[in-house]
Each structure stands twice: as C-alpha cells, then as structure tokens.
Design a protein around this nucleic acid. Structure first.
Length: 352
DNA sequence: GACGCGTGGCG
DNA sequence: TCGCCAAGCGT
C-alpha cells in the first residue's frame, strides 16, 4: 500500500477545517486578486482580528482597485489609522494607481511581475500568485517558518535559518491546489502549530513531525536574542483656541508615522525633557503653558515612548503653521494610535 | 544582512 | 507588568 503525501494530508485537513475569512474564496476556487492583495498587505505583521474590520471598511468604501486608485490620499491614510506600519498604506495607494495606469486595472498573475510593485515582497507575491491565480509559488511567512522548523526539527536560530526553511517549504509545496496549500500551511501555523502551546495531539502532520518526536516542537523555532527596547521622551503641545479647536499638523511623508496627522511635539529624544528645553520647540512662543498631570506611554516597534503634555490657548488662530480641527472631527483625521492616546488623556482631564 | 517601521493581545 | 508575537517590506 502507499501512504498519502504530506501535502495531500494537509489539504484534506484544510478541506475539513479551513476558516471562513472575509477575503477567502471556497476551496478549489481562485479568489479575487484585489481582495487577496488588499488582505495580504493588511496582514503583513498584523493579526487577523486586527485586520478584519479594516478590510471590511476598505472593501466597502473602495470596492475595486479603480476606486482605490481614485481615492484621496488623506482619506486612505485616515482609514488606515490605527492599523500601523503606515508605509503599507502609502504603498497600497501607489500600487493601486500603477495597476490602473499601467495594467488596465488587472493585477499581474506571476510572482516575478508582482514583485516589481510597491509593497509587494517575496511573501505577498507568492501569496497572490498562488491564491488568486493558482500558480505554484513557495509561500514563506512566519507561520511556514515555524511549521517547517518543527516538522524538520531545525535547531539553527532565525533569522539565519531562513534560507534552509525556504528550501524545506519548497520541497513540500505541491503542483496542484497551490493556493489552498498555501492557506492550509498558514492556517495550520495560526491555529494548531501556534507559537506558544501547539496542539500537536490533533495535528494532521504529527506522525511526520520530527520536532514532536524529539519533544522540542513547542520551543521551535529558536531565535537569536533581541536587544532591549530603548526609551524615548517627548513633550506634546495641546494648543486650543477659545472655542476648543485644536492645532494639528502633518508629519513628514516618510519615516515614523510618515504622512500621518500629529499633535505638535518636541522631538522624541533619549532623555526626559525639562519645561524650559521643551517650549522653544512649540509652534507658538510667549505662551503661558499649563502642565497636564500624568504621562502618555506608547510602545513602538523599536522604542518605548513617554509623553508629557502641556496646554496653552491662543486668542487668534491665524499665522500659525498647522491645521485647526474641532475634536468632533478627529475621527476623520489620520491620527495614529499614539496620538489618539494623547487625545484620550486630555479628554480625561476635562471630565475630572 | 541589519535595521526602521505600529499596534494590540496574550500568557 | 513585561516580553513576545502577527499572513513582511524597503532600504
């Protein structure tokens, strides 16, 4: 007798257990390339739970790549606000406009062509090519790396082991049902073969899994130690006019929170700010500042931030660089989470 | 290849 | 409270 191949075993598991996600199509069908692309960009380093509402909002507001390409930049950034990694939103718009301008509104169907588009790297190109176009492509994300490391008991640490893990993933990738297979491995990693406590007992691959048989599956993949997150400090200037309108401004188009709306602030430096050092950075001078009690803490990918807030009022809003926005219109702004924390902090002051 | 780039949830 | 983690990409 012959035993089923690993990919056949996994696909059978997927047919029984696949999750219903808004961007997915039924097994054995090709999904809409626009849907696959939009979801894959949002899912980069981001959980399904976080993506779901954003995906539904985007698809509702911009149902096609043509609609997205025609969208206003500020509307797209505002709709992305809170999801993080804002370069993805800038690249999303840029990519949509290239698709419409150079590709007649159709996504290319090969990995090689997809790779030339902004925001689409090795993983996303392979995902779109396989899931939306049925091409054989080796899809390697964090899930696949973890599953391969466990299945083959790879003990060399990441990121050094990446090339080896890709080779192992390539060897397992079938010629048929390529999109379903890609989603199946990722589903396996996201549900059973999870980072902390894998559910090996009901895993379709348990009998093949070297990591399981060596008793080290849950520990894999090993990773090289990370350095501790440094701390940074800033002072935010909460400036209002007599009617409670607040001074906002735009951040530079690239870099941290690039293109997003901010509340004016000192630079974010390694040492705490004194009041005297802070105020020269304010958008207005000669102000009487009122220190707001407490601090706002926020963790970015590569540093921890602690913000103090000082408040001031101006009689006239003219001749000050920035935009004056009423609080009831904040929800239309491209305000990242750290700035919404500052706003919440100020609203707590009002009610206490 | 290393680093910059967000956020929220979870053990 | 804290470190880890998520369907990575661009430079």
């Amino acid at each position: 007798m012959t035993s089923a191949s690993p990919d056949t075993i996994l696909l059978a598991w997927y047919d029984r257990n696949h999750r219903h996600l808004p961007w997915r199509s039924p097994p054995d069908t090709y999904a809409n390339p626009y849907h696959v692309w939009l979801s894959e960009i949002m899912l980069q380093q981001t959980t399904v739970a976080a993506v779901r509402p954003y995906y539904l909002t985007f698809l509702s507001r911009w149902p096609t790549v043509e609609a997205l390409a025609a969208a206003d930049d500020g509307d797209v950034m505002a709709a992305w606000a809170g999801l993080g990694y804002y370069a993805r939103a800038r690249n999303l718009l840029s990519c949509a406009r290239i698709i419409v301008r150079d590709h007649d509104g159709h996504f290319p169907g090969t990995e090689q062509a997809l790779l030339t588009l902004p925001g689409i790297g090795a993983y996303t190109a392979a995902a779109i090519a396989s899931i939306a176009f049925g091409q054989r492509a080796v899809v390697v994300d964090g899930n696949v790396e973890r599953v391969m490391a466990r299945l083959h008991a790879v003990t060399d640490p990441l990121p050094g082991a990446k090339k080896h893990l890709r080779t192992l993933a390539d060897a397992l990738t079938p010629q048929q049902r390529c999109g379903d297979y890609a989603q199946a491995v990722m589903d396996l990693g996201a549900t059973l073969c999870s980072p902390r406590s894998p559910n090996c007992q009901i895993c379709p691959w348990v009998s093949l899994c070297k990591g399981y048989h060596q008793g080290i599956a849950a520990e894999l993949p090993y990773k090289t130690a990370k350095t501790k997150r440094p701390g940074r400090y800033g002072t935010v200037f909460w400036i209002t006019d007599p009617e409670g309108t607040v001074l906002l401004r735009q951040r530079p188009p690239r870099g941290l929170l690039g293109g997003m709306t901010e509340i004016p602030s000192t630079p974010w430096q390694e040492a705490p700010w004194t009041l005297e050092d802070s105020t020269p950075h304010a958008p207005i001078q000669g102000e009487t500042w009122h220190t707001i009690a407490g601090t706002v803490h926020h963790t970015f990918s590569h540093f921890d931030l602690e913000l103090k807030v000082i408040a001031g009022t101006v009689a006239q809003t003219g001749n000050i660089a920035g935009r004056w926005v009423k609080p009831e219109h904040f929800d239309k702004e491209a305000l990242p989470s750290v700035m919404r924390k500052v706003i919440r902090h100020m609203q707590k002051q009002d009610t206490s």
